[in-house]
Design a protein around this nucleic acid. Structure first.
Length: 290
DNA sequence: GGTGCGATCGCCT
DNA sequence: GGCGATCGCACCG
């Protein structure tokens, strides 16, 4: 396959320097605008032509008085329950060194139980230097490197060694900064990423929100640089349609690979990988019921 | 649009 | 020493 060979980008674990990557444009006042699920698709599909950040659309207005960070009680629930509780309702917030705040709504997660779950880093109750955060109190961040060049972010839950992997976010605030952080590790001159491509994968969201390895073992309920907020724009009358499918990238773990512990919002444009089988079954079910 | 492939290194066996 | 909770790019249709 020599014809497919191409030069790869040199990458390291070092984070792009936050200060260097901060976009002054993100200090602009963000727009207040509720976007309905129906409008969401159009929003993302029409967001291709951002030239320099000036035209960036954000549709979120953080109000820290009305929507304070989630406290430690929120994280005290089982792994699977927490993985679903994140979806569509919780916003991951990253406060950068210059005060810029980046926000993304969680739209895709995976549950990794401890003990019997062979696909988990904590399988069999194995506790190592790397996975210590998985055994710490619910709400502890577990950041680990993967494939030598990427990072993944998890949040510990109730249950010995259990944690939820954050897989995808819907960018809400600070998209220009996210785009810069992501572009820092892409080929020079590569096309500009669409909004929906900024955080649609576990390592992409770590890049876009500048989550470094040293955030490992930090407490989401108390850290000044990263926390969760309840999404103020969610309409409780419209419950989210959550898809449950097998987790990604763990095919070698036999039966445990089949457990439907990846969860995402059906039809959301920011989901990393849509499960075609689940979509097909859902569509045929719709035909039957309509 | 989808698919195949290789980068790269920490971690665990 | 082998592998991985991924990603971006080139190629194909």
């Amino acid at each position: 396959m020599a014809s497919r060979k191409r030069k790869m980008l040199p990458m390291t674990h070092e984070e792009a320097a936050p200060e260097k990557a901060i976009n002054k444009h993100t200090n602009q006042t963000d727009l207040t605008l509720y976007v309905s699920p129906a409008e969401l698709k159009n929003t993302f599909e029409s967001s291709e032509s951002v030239e320099n950040g000036e035209a960036e659309h954000t549709h979120y207005f953080p109000n820290n008085d009305l929507h304070p960070r989630l406290d430690e009680d929120f994280f005290k629930q089982s792994c699977i329950s927490l993985a679903k509780a994140f979806l569509g309702k919780q916003v991951l917030v990253r406060r950068c060194a210059d005060g810029t705040e980046l926000r993304g709504r969680i739209v895709e997660t995976e549950a990794y139980l401890g003990g019997e779950d062979k696909a988990s880093h904590s399988a069999g109750g194995r506790r190592t230097e790397r996975n210590t955060a998985m055994f710490m109190k619910p709400g502890t961040i577990y950041v680990y490197p993967i494939y030598g060049i990427y990072l993944c972010m998890n949040v510990s839950s109730e249950g010995e060694g259990a944690a939820v992997l954050l897989r995808s976010l819907e960018p809400l605030q600070g998209q220009p900064t996210m785009r810069q952080l992501r572009a820092a590790r892409r080929k020079e001159g590569a096309r500009q990423l669409k909004d929906k491509e900024l955080c649609n994968g576990p390592s992409k969201l770590c890049q876009a929100l500048n989550i470094p390895r040293c955030f490992d073992r930090r407490n989401l309920a108390a850290d000044p640089e990263v926390w969760l907020e309840k999404d103020p724009n969610i309409n409780p009358a419209e419950p989210h349609n959550i898809v449950s499918v097998p987790r990604i990238g763990i095919e070698s773990h036999g039966e445990w690979a089949k457990k439907p512990w990846r969860f995402y919002l059906r039809g959301h444009p920011c989901v990393s990988v849509v499960n075609k089988e689940a979509e097909r079954q859902y569509m045929s079910g719709n035909v039957m019921s309509n």
